[in-house]
């Protein structure tokens, strides 16, 4: 008779990790960080268009989340909560920064292409996403923030207004202005397919 197989260790899911982290389990929180770091970093990069700054914002967002865990009411998913915190950190950082210098744009940043599509489609997608990324980066940061949250992440105007502490009307105006600027910048490219 061979040795009995050791019971397979089941990895805890986000919900279980969250319960442990809320009780002060740092290891569980580290696992949550590893599960969500890419999406938090992606959001930060899209908001600030600067990799180094996005890393700082992601780190700050997770540390704030750790401190605020006892207040997390769990009426939203952890990822949704992390998105809100990340937007807050990025927005607060922008307020601090705008007195000192213009919005930085990371020229080296390239938007990765989704891997589950054909090579031809991937090349086309890369070209379009490259142009779109450049056009997005050219938007003023307050405008870009609203466009990213509404058109990429599907937030409502109400959610955007609340998080950025602006009126719904202001959010709508920024979205309108942002889409118009993107359309003007991408005109030639879109013309080919229309």
């Amino acid at each position: 008779m061979g040795n009995p197989m050791p019971p397979e260790r089941v990895k805890p899911n986000d919900e279980e990790l969250l319960v442990l982290a809320m009780a002060g389990d740092r290891a569980a929180f580290s696992d949550l960080v590893r599960h969500h770091q890419d999406e938090v970093y992606t959001l930060a990069v899209r908001l600030v268009a600067d990799r180094e700054l996005a890393e700082d914002i992601s780190q700050e967002a997770f540390v704030r989340a750790w401190r605020a865990l006892p207040n997390f009411r769990r009426d939203a998913k952890f990822s949704t909560w992390m998105h809100r915190i990340t937007v807050n950190v990025a927005w607060t950082q922008r307020r601090k920064q705008r007195r000192h210098r213009a919005d930085p744009i990371d020229e080296s940043f390239t938007e990765p292409v989704a891997e589950s599509i054909s090579p031809e489609r991937a090349a086309e997608s890369a070209a379009i996403q490259g142009s779109l990324r450049d056009a997005l980066n050219n938007l003023p940061r307050p405008t870009r923030t609203v466009v990213v949250l509404k058109d990429v992440y599907g937030w409502t105007h109400g959610e955007i207004a609340e998080r950025l502490e602006i009126t719904i009307a202001a959010a709508k105006v920024r979205l309108h202005r942002g889409r118009k600027q993107l359309r003007n910048q991408l005109w030639a490219e879109m013309e080919e397919d229309v």
Partner: peptide, 24 residues
């Protein structure tokens, strides 16, 4: 096109998780 960006994830820098763990 903007909505399709939601499906694309940018990989976080390697040290991020360790930096967060140290800060925590």
């Amino acid at each position: 096109q903007l909505a399709s960006l939601a499906e694309v994830t940018v990989q976080a820098p390697e040290p991020l998780a360790a930096e967060v763990a140290a800060a925590v």
